[in-house]
Write a protein that binds this DNA or RNA. Structure first.
Lengths: 165, 165
DNA sequence: CACAATTGAATTGCTCACAACTTAAATCGC
DNA sequence: GCGATTTAAGTTGTGAGCAATTCAATTGTG
């Protein structure tokens, strides 16, 4: 598998430039575009369900993490969700202003925010319990297909993280 | 060390509730989250390549469509990209201000914008010709896997569009 | 023909994503 | 110990996405 530094040769080797370039471009474009469109559609499909909880999809992701484990830092949360403080800080402030999250400070390290749920934040979990099933219905498809989709997305994500340049 | 990124079945959100609901929730959540994270990572991976063309990924998508077919309306473009005028109008204005796109008016229907490329917009295509190969290297994986990923994304997208409620 | 309904774009307002930068606190090297 | 470096979080600015709304042009219906 050629890596980035060895790319121009293979490409110019097979002439009839238009056809090959266009085919490669086309397939590639369609994979990324399909991913992009499906992700947008997924977030859109969550909206009517999450509106009832007054949450956005990224906010819902944060709540999922905090329903599992409280007392984590913004950094840890960001590592789990692949989001940075520039995204999370304002999002967490919104969750705080809704009364769902507390943004404390670590006593061992004054830089660190310690994230906890309020009783209201904890209580919201039961209201969210029906969402996965509703989304499962919306997405449809066989379980095996969803597993395959997840696995392929995870593999692509891992590969994209590995090729940071 | 539980993380959201790479958990198969063993890691359920919480074991204190109904097992079926949690498993369903967990799997479902992870599919959507994987999709969301992979799409974000994909856009991020495009950035250094597209920076050279002074394009964002959504702008690149618009250019791909216009490199194929000019003279289309905002509506037609939106149907192809699954984006609405609220997203496309400001984006197209940015492409226009960069001198890549012309936003004319249809003479048959004064409501309709007719989108065309400037010579600079057309010329940019050759500069973009290497991008698909570079992205192909970044994403990695077998061709069959990418085809499967695309097919599963397309199926999910179609299903999500079908279940508009 | 008139006028109600529909349609294509644009606008407004809100919330991500993220690069680039800043600030303050902790840690490292010597 | 102490300056240099690293790290955690926050800030700023730009560009999506999209719901809701507006407006004008077109179409449909009587």
């Amino acid at each position: 598998m050629p890596t980035l530094e060895s790319q121009p040769q293979t490409h110019s080797a097979d002439m009839d430039e238009n056809t090959n370039t266009d085919n490669a471009l086309c397939l590639e474009h369609q994979v990324c575009f399909s991913l992009y469109s499906a992700a947008n559609a997924m977030v859109r499909a969550y909206r009517p369900l999450l509106d009832k909880l007054d949450l956005t999809y990224p906010q819902y992701l944060v709540m999922l993490v905090l329903w599992e484990e409280q007392g984590i830092s913004v950094k840890t949360l960001g590592d789990k969700l692949f989001l940075d403080s520039g995204t999370l800080t304002p999002l967490l402030k919104r969750l705080e202003s809704k009364g769902l999250v507390r943004r404390g400070r670590s006593e061992l390290d004054e830089r660190v925010r310690v994230l906890d749920l309020t009783p209201e934040g904890v209580a919201l979990k039961s209201q969210a319990s029906g969402i996965p099933h509703l989304m499962r219905c919306k997405v449809g498809g066989e379980l095996s297909e969803l597993k395959a989709l997840k696995q392929l997305c995870d593999k692509a994500l891992k590969q994209l993280h590995a090729s940071i340049d």
